[in-house]
């Protein structure tokens, strides 16, 4: 649905987007991730024909953004970072205005306005001035505006920014429910959001593509070695943690056991392995030794860590260069 090839945006002094390529399949929700200033908004603006790319190409629903901007715009619903609202208009009136701009008219326009009001739960503020709405409502009116012409592709720039937790959940659910009919590309720098809503992630940093994969694969990839967290307690007096370490190291497949500290009688260990091991073996080995097994869970690496790892490695080279320069020859 969205095909981006070698997309580049260069300004006089800096390169905001640097040869980015990715694809988004029909019906997917894709998270577009990156720290502030990474080039997310710029990329989205190029996809929505707001600004032309310096080089490279992008196409939406098989139409090139440079060659057929008018047709592309009909296929796209766009919610910029600040919802484009006119405070002096009432919600319903505003949606009608946007609908007309997108080429709707007559009965169809009326039907779509009714539909999106219902869908984005803004029907109760239909006759209220937008300037008087709360932030959550405004965001929803912004979303309603984006889907008014039933576009194939939805491009949402930080749709949950500045909302309270309840509103964030509502907005997320709304976006998820839109996925079947629309292909969604949403940008954010909030990671749990991606974990919860998206099937695929595209991470960019400083204008460059860092990773593009499914959420699951990314987590696995960054984890490298598989590891589990184990919490153990002893019934008979204090626990000798070096004993536990020795015991666990004997389990097949385990390469390393780290002591993580004790808390109210329980000691935690992290069991690492190069390939894989049976969690059952770990549990059995502890119970057989006469200890209590309190907790056993995979040490899932959150997307946050993946993100930090991926974006950090990009930052290193200039730092090293600075260090090198500081060394007297």
């Amino acid at each position: 649905m969205i095909i981006v090839e070698e997309l580049t945006k260069r300004y006089a002094r800096n390169t905001a987007v640097d040869h980015i390529s990715f694809r988004v399949e029909k019906g997917q929700i894709v998270g577009f991730l990156g720290p502030n200033g990474a080039g997310k908004t710029t990329t989205m603006r190029m996809l929505t024909c707001f600004m032309p790319p310096t080089s490279g190409s992008a196409s939406i629903a098989g139409l090139d953004v440079l060659e057929h901007p008018m047709k592309v715009k009909k296929h796209i619903g766009y919610l910029p970072e600040t919802p484009p609202l006119y405070p002096e208009m009432a919600t319903g009136e505003y949606l009608q205005f946007v609908g007309r701009l997108k080429g709707l008219s007559g009965g169809e326009l009326k039907k779509r306005v009714d539909y999106v009001c219902e869908r984005c739960s803004v029907a109760d503020v239909r006759h209220k001035l937008i300037g008087k709405l709360s932030k959550g409502y405004r965001q929803r009116v912004g979303l309603a505006q984006a889907i008014i012409h039933n576009p194939d592709v939805l491009i949402l720039d930080e749709p949950t920014a500045g909302l309270d937790p309840k509103q964030i959940n509502e907005t997320r659910d709304l976006i998820k429910s839109l996925a079947g009919d629309h292909t969604i590309l949403l940008s954010t720098h909030i990671l749990p959001e991606v974990e919860q809503t998206c099937q695929q992630v595209i991470i960019i940093n400083k204008g460059k593509l860092v990773a593009t994969d499914s959420v699951q694969n990314l987590q696995n990839r960054a984890r490298g070695a598989v590891s589990v967290l184990v919490e153990v307690a002893s019934r008979s007096g204090p626990l000798d943690f070096s004993m536990v370490q020795k015991q666990l190291e004997q389990v097949a497949g385990v390469s390393r056991v780290l002591y993580r500290g004790s808390n109210s009688g329980f000691s935690s260990f992290e069991v690492e392995s190069e390939k894989s091991f049976s969690r059952g073996d770990v549990a059995r080995s502890i119970v057989n030794a006469g200890w209590d097994l309190n907790e056993l869970r995979p040490a899932a690496i959150s997307l946050e860590e993946v993100f930090l790892q991926l974006t950090k490695s990009e930052e290193k080279p200039p730092l090293e260069a600075a260090e090198l320069a500081g060394v007297p020859a």
């Binding site: 008018m70 006119y86 997108k102």
Partner: peptide, 14 residues
């Protein structure tokens, strides 16, 4: 200033 220009420019309007 308010960013609504993005709506106008990204709509199929010349």
């Amino acid at each position: 200033r308010s960013g609504t220009i993005e709506l106008l420019v990204t709509s199929p309007v010349r």
